[in-house]
């Protein structure tokens, strides 16, 4: 997965690069529209991470250029302007997703992988971890070839864990992934706990290993 990060805040792009490279991405970082254009004309990428406010122009203009020259590229917009207009404009102009700053890197990873997966569209869309497999087209989840029934939230949760496997996911990051801004943090942690408890039970009942580990009551980690 080749990713071009277009972000002028070096501190942020460094962290994104470190995190995503650990996830197996090949990351290149540029800080301006002109540098981004150079890279885009010279090399090929699978995904673009585009900040809307750049020192030499509006990210939306670059988005237009990318969509007309490389329509197959997956684009995720990140913006500090939590303006709905920007979000709608970005999505209308062909961006695949929009993430408002600040965000969890696990969330960024999950969104990028979802875009990548949608763009690939070859054969069956399967995601797996150990003996658990998820079919992203049919929403079927199998543990040791046995189908288990998950609610939508449990499915989302399992997917989030698998794309961020071996990572510590805090309760907060999970709550934000599942509910966005709707949930109050005070309530959400209990609900995260309940969902995880149910998910674990379903996997273990189907004969799977208990792969979701609690980390000191702060969060959870999916690991073999």
């Amino acid at each position: 997965m080749k990713l071009l990060v277009i972000e002028d805040q070096k501190e942020l792009s460094d962290n994104i690069q470190v995190y995503l490279e650990n996830e197996g991405y090949i990351c290149e970082v540029v800080a301006s529209i002109s540098k981004a254009s150079e890279k885009l004309y010279g090399y090929s990428y699978d995904l673009i991470l585009l900040d809307l406010m750049l020192p030499d122009g509006d990210g939306l203009d670059l988005l237009q250029t990318i969509k007309s020259n490389w329509p197959e590229l997956g684009i995720l917009i990140i913006s500090a302007k939590n303006a709905l207009d920007d979000k709608i404009a970005g999505l209308n102009m062909g961006a695949d997703d929009y993430l408002a700053k600040p965000f969890h890197l696990a969330e960024l990873n999950a969104r990028l992988k979802a875009i990548y997966r949608r763009k690939q569209q070859m054969g069956e869309d399967l995601i797996s971890f150990e003996n658990i497999s998820m079919n992203m087209d049919t929403y079927e989840v199998r543990v040791n070839d046995e189908t288990i029934e998950l609610t939508r939230k449990e499915f989302d949760l399992l997917h989030y864990f698998i794309v961020n496997k071996n990572r510590l996911l805090t309760k907060q990051a999970i709550a934000e992934h599942l509910w966005g801004d709707f949930m109050d943090s005070a309530d959400s942690f209990d609900f995260v706990y309940q969902h995880i408890k149910n998910l674990r039970r379903k996997i273990v009942n189907a004969g799977g290993m208990d792969v979701i580990h609690t980390v000191y009551g702060t969060g959870y980690k999916l690991k073999a």
Partner: peptide
């Protein structure tokens, strides 16, 4: 608002990277 969100995004991402470090104890994680 914008200028606040950007440094917050940096804080957030640094904490995300930090929390993935191996060998953190409970107190540090909290």
């Amino acid at each position: 608002s914008h200028e606040l969100q950007t440094p917050l995004a940096i804080i957030q991402s640094k904490l995300d990277v930090l929390i993935q470090e191996e060998g953190l104890n409970e107190k540090q994680l909290k």
